[in-house]
Structures are given as structure tokens and as C-alpha cells.
Design a protein around this nucleic acid. Sequence first.
DNA 1: CCCCGCGAGTAAAGATGCTTTACTAGCGAA
DNA 2: TTCGCTAGTAAAGCATCTTTACTCGCGGGG
Lengths: 163, 163
Amino acid sequence: MDRRASGGVEDPLARFELTFLLGMGFQLLLNEFSRRLAEAGYAELRPVHGMAFQALRGHGATSSELAERLGVTKQAAGQLVKELEQRGYVRREAHPAGGRRRLVVLTDAAVRHLEVAGGILRELEAEAAQRAGRDDLDALRGELARLIHGMTGEALPPLRPVW
Amino acid sequence: MDRRASGGVEDPLARFELTFLLGMGFQLLLNEFSRRLAEAGYAELRPVHGMAFQALRGHGATSSELAERLGVTKQAAGQLVKELEQRGYVRREAHPAGGRRRLVVLTDAAVRHLEVAGGILRELEAEAAQRAGRDDLDALRGELARLIHGMTGEALPPLRPVW
DNA sequence: CCCCGCGAGTAAAGATGCTTTACTAGCGAA
DNA sequence: TTCGCTAGTAAAGCATCTTTACTCGCGGGG
């Protein structure tokens, strides 16, 4: 049986613009992600915190570098770091290059969070694959990747927590 | 030539979770949409205003109905309506059902905005289709529609302007 | 008939999470 | 030594939402 509406009732989603479809899909996945993350004990962390962890994973970064990667001002990044430090998710160490620089690095708690968050994201993707079929989901990923590359070239855009 | 990386350098996007890919694609399209809309003289309107126009198109609605469709409180919706009324995008008429109800309806200016915005969205989609191929883009639309239906059933989720 | 309660709408204050403006601190180079 | 660059911080401003608390109009039960 064909999944596409052929002669039956037209899918109302077919009338929506691509941008809306992307937005709806994103919002649905993200809401469910946040729900499960809160259930897992991370209700205090918003998506932007997870983005910060992503940006800091590996060798850490200065607050200003973090700001650039997140696409916000360095003041906003500084405040984020302060909160995360108070909650024990990052440490601020002496920066090898000296100056006023401080290197912000993840603690084990943040690394654990990244693992849990990643697990939930993969779980969501697996559930979608079960409904839509693994092949279709891989195709979706490929087409999204091409769309993104077509709009940005090689550089990856920052993912900001607001419209 | 195969588009998928087969033996060459792996696409860094292949490492990202589906949720991130959706978010990036959405944000890229939306940013470009906002840019062009501002260029077309609508710099004063944010995406949420366009969403409100969508929700009101046809027969209009009360502020409370609008609030529900946008997924915000009725106070927030009321403020939105006040702004839009001052700028001449909506009118508030007597509601046939009486009571305190006021029917919020679109003016011609709002209808024109919807046309311009729709044109830009279709333009963006056409450009993406030119890069990726019309078939691929249709496939993307179909897969997004299935993803959304898989998560919501028939009901369509509100599209809120924040994470 | 009256009041009572409900839903629509409004008003004001509060919360949040950014940006803007404006400063201080360390370092290297002219 | 002073100039200027960059990192970081502090405080205020601002946009946009929610919460709390009311007022208005109507219809129904006593």
C-alpha cells in the first residue's frame, strides 16, 4: 500500500511550506527530548545548556569562544558559565595562553549529561525509524544534510534557542 | 556520482542527531525568510505575527481562541492583538455570539503580508529544490510529514517561537 | 427576579534571558 | 611607557512571556 495519498483524502501537511514542516518536526522532537531529559533528573538544564556542553566538549574553551559558538554575546555566555559552574557542570581553569583568559572545561557531571542526552536523542531517532522505516529515516537525514550544505557551504550554523 | 560519502571524507553532518539536523535546517530557512521579509518592508513583524495571521485567516477568532492556537496565554495573545491592531493588521469586530467576545479579523494589509510571506517561503523551497532536485525535496516533504504524523496522530502541533 | 457563576477580556506585576553600554585587567608591541 | 587589543565583568535596559488578580456580560437555578 502506497503511503502517499493517491486518490484518497489529501494530507493537510502537504499544504504546509517546507519551513513549517521543519519547524513542526523540530519542535515535536525537541519537546519530547526535553520531557525525557527532565524525567531523567535534568529538569534544571535547558537546551542551551546542552548546546554549551557540546561546544565545550573535548578541550574546553574560553567564555568568548563559547559565546561565538553559541551565537550570543560574551556576557550571555559568561552568565551561562557562572550558572553551570555553580551547579557543578563546568570548572574554570588557568588558560595556558595566560592573560585574563580562563579555560572553561566540563566536569564529569556534564559528561554524564551529554551521554544521557545523546542516548535520548538516539532513542527518539530509533523510535521514528521504527515507525517510518530505517531506510526512509536515512534518506531524511541525507536530504536534510544536503539542504543544510546547500545553504551554508561547509560551515555549520550555530543553533540558537530562539527564533 | 553517488551523493553519499562512499569511501571519501565523511560528512560531519552524518554525526549529528536527527533533532539537530532538523533544528539547523529550520533555523537556516527561517533566518533567510526573516531577512527577505524585512527587505520586503516587514521588519516590524516577527515570525509569531505571521503565525497569528495564519491562525486568524478565514473567519478570524477571539483572542482566547488565538491564544490556544498559538499555545500562549490569553494575555499574551491579547497583547499581540493590540499591537497588530495599532499597526493596522487586524480589526476587532462585534462577535456574533455576543457576550464580551470580540472577533479579531485580518485587514487587507495582513492578507497582503500573508501573500508576500507565502511567496518568500515558496521561493526558498524552489531554490532548495534547484540545488537538491525536485524529487529529493518532495521526498523530504513526505518524510517530514510521516515523522510529524507519527508523533502527533492527526492533530497538528502549535509552532511556538521559542525552544 | 436576582444573584451566582462562568468564560472573555484586561491590567499590573514578576520572571526570564537576552543585549547594550560601559567599565577593568593583563599583555605585547611601537 | 603608553597605546591598544582582547578577555572578562558589571549594571542597566529591553522584549516577551507568565502569574495573579480584577472587571464585564450573560444565562440559568433558586
